[in-house]
Design a protein around this nucleic acid. Structure first.
Ligand SMILES: [Mn+2]
Ligand SMILES: [Mn+2]
Ligand SMILES: [Zn+2]
Ligand SMILES: [Zn+2]
Lengths: 156, 156
DNA sequence: AAGTCACGTGCAACTATGTTGCGTTAAATG
DNA sequence: CATTTAACGCAACATAGTTGCACGTGACTT
């Protein structure tokens, strides 16, 4: 499975026409393996540390991936950007769930945002995103079971 | 007008039952006068400098205002939080426009987001926000008139 | 009006995410 | 293999927001 994702990543990057580097391949592979949007920090932790990829490089790769459409950048409530691999080419109007406690972001592939929304005169709309805020399964569960815990930021 | 907004702010805060302080009144008055969502920086610039309100206090007041529902916090693409006074009690499902160039955020009071969106099992939705990304009137205009300008971050 | 006290404030130091400049490395091409 | 140039590593920086603590003040009691 790991090998497959790495191969898939390499193919996608090669397809894009740009240089195929280890950092790009590995970061994209990490995103492809993930089941939710990953922050820079998440990516660093999941990267094979033996590769020794610099944190700035990870930032630049994530930026490049979202710039060329291979990934999808989502600005979180918590001032952290998270990235999804854009396997299923995201429609111009799709939906995300954001957990207000731990920051977890997942794509809601089922739901779709309205494509046409009235904007003030002169404004030029480009993309519509539907954001559902609430608690992820983990946070909702720990909230209800362990009665009263401080609202500290979770780390799962 | 300025006096009226200050009075309105004071009344709203008094209504909330919490302490009525100069910082809270002035910050809320600034938000009430604004026609768009304001960042911490925006608020500081618009505060009468003779009041000498500390920047940390402004952060805390903005946090308190959004916490008690007198204002509405919006996380921007640019990692900056912006705040709207919640005059017209925001519905649980409303829409915002965010300019991808200068970061300007305005409430789209006309549009409404779908109230019911399917989420994964265990997830608990709380609020739905429809975000339209694009260019505000100013940015769209300067982009089309002065043909090719660098994509630097605007400051209006 | 004076006294009390918890809540709000000012200040300084700090954290965290992300960015920039620059010299070096290594993909691509032939 | 040699050349070219985009990508990388490193260090320093930028900026939004947070925290700890001493002090001041709004609201409430007397
Ligand atoms: Mn998405
Ligand atoms: Mn709003
Ligand atoms: Zn969560
Ligand atoms: Zn703009």
């Amino acid at each position: 499975m790991a090998k497959t994702m790495t191969d898939a990543a390499e193919a996608m990057i090669r397809e894009s026409g740009a240089r195929v580097t280890r950092a790009r391949v590995e970061v994209l592979a990490v995103l492809l393996k993930a089941e939710r949007a990953l922050s820079h920090h998440d990516v660093e932790r999941r990267l094979n540390r033996s590769l020794g990829v610099d944190r700035v490089t990870v930032y630049r790769v994530l930026d490049w991936l979202s710039g060329c459409g291979l990934a999808h950048k989502i600005a979180g409530e918590d001032r952290i950007s998270r990235y999804n691999a854009a396997e299923h080419a995201h429609s111009r109007a799709h939906a995300h769930f954001q957990c207000g406690r731990c920051g977890t972001v997942v794509c809601l592939d089922d739901a779709d945002a309205p494509t046409e929304v009235p904007v003030p005169t002169g404004f030029v709309p480009h993309e519509v995103v539907l954001t559902v805020k609430g608690l992820c399964a983990t946070c909702a569960h720990t909230r209800t079971s362990s009665s009263r815990h401080p609202p500290a930021r979770a780390r799962h």
